[in-house]
């Protein structure tokens, strides 16, 4: 009961990249990060409107590896938390 409610609420409200389950895909909505870091991440492919998927992570679950534009980029959760994603 609780679980299904949680899943439903996640669908409606924007989630962050850090919570994206491994193997699933989302679309980047915006980067709530300082200018320099946001620019660097965009150069690497984290661009609003582009698709991103979660791949493996380091043993222990942090940092995580994300796939954008055919490349794999590792980010810490604390950074991925500020990347807002939506479902399509």
């Amino acid at each position: 009961m609780q679980l299904s409610f949680k899943a439903a609420s996640r669908k409606r409200t924007p989630a962050c990249l850090a919570d994206l389950p491994a193997g699933s895909e989302a679309v980047i909505d915006r980067l709530d990060l300082p200018g320099d870091l946001a620019a660097r991440l965009m150069e690497l492919g984290f661009i609003p409107g582009h698709r991103v998927s979660a791949a493996r992570s380091a043993p222990g679950g942090d940092p995580r590896v994300f796939r954008v534009d055919g490349a794999e980029i590792a980010l810490r959760r604390e950074t991925a938390r500020h990347i807002v994603v939506r479902n399509n």
Binding site: L37, R40, L44, E72, I73, A74, L75, R76, E78, T79
Partner: peptide, 9 residues
């Protein structure tokens, strides 16, 4: 401050 870790695999 902690600097972010961003690395291409």
């Amino acid at each position: 401050e902690r600097t972010p870790f961003v690395l291409e695999m």
